Amino acid sequence: MEKTSAINKTAWEYRAYEFWNQRDGSPADKAKAIRNDPKASLKKHQHLFKEVTGKKNCQSLRIERAQSGSAGVTRC
């Protein structure tokens, strides 16, 4: 099974970066597009995110806790 997994991994990764660059542009270009319209990158899941203005994600919560010196684990 391990050999099959390695073969599948290689097949999936083969020229994937090249494909994404050709389809989406550079990583910086893709990041800019996502920042400009985050919902567009969700495609078929957009309907699950009606209103997210003002909501915080896990990463921002962890940063806030670290900066405030709060101990504990942030659960998301």
Rank of each mutant, 00 (worst) to 15 (best):
C76A: 06
C58R: 11
A71M: 08
R65Y: 01
Y14L: 07
R35W: 06
V52M: 13
A6Q: 14
R23T: 13
Y14D: 14
G25C: 05
Y17V: 10
F19L: 09
A28V: 08
N36I: 04
D37F: 02
M1P: 01
R75K: 12
K30W: 09
S70N: 12
Q59A: 10
S41P: 00
Y17F: 11
A71Q: 11
A28L: 10
M1A: 10
A11C: 07
C76L: 05
M1G: 09
K3W: 12
W12K: 15
Q67V: 14
W12C: 13
R62Q: 15
I7Q: 12
R15V: 05
Q22E: 14
A40D: 09
A16L: 13
H45I: 00
Q46A: 00
A16Q: 10
K3A: 11
I7C: 08
E64Y: 03
E2F: 07
A31T: 10
S41T: 08
Y14T: 07
A71K: 13
L61Q: 08
L42N: 00
D29S: 13
L61Y: 13
C76F: 04
A66R: 15
S41I: 09
N57G: 01
K44R: 10
I63Y: 08
V73Y: 10
G69S: 07
P38S: 06
E51M: 02
G69K: 06
T74R: 12
C58T: 07
K9S: 11
S26N: 03
G54T: 10
Q22D: 06
A28S: 14
K32W: 07
G54V: 03
T10V: 11
A11T: 09
G72W: 01
K30Y: 15
K9R: 14
S68G: 06
A31R: 13
L48T: 01
V73I: 14
R75H: 11
Q67T: 15
E13T: 08
V52S: 11
A28P: 02
H45F: 05
E18Q: 09
R62S: 05
K44D: 09
A40H: 02
S41Q: 06
A11S: 13
Y14Q: 09
W20C: 08
T10P: 03
E2I: 08
K44H: 10
S70D: 10
K44W: 08
L48S: 02
H47T: 04
D24M: 10
K39A: 03
M1L: 08
Q22K: 15
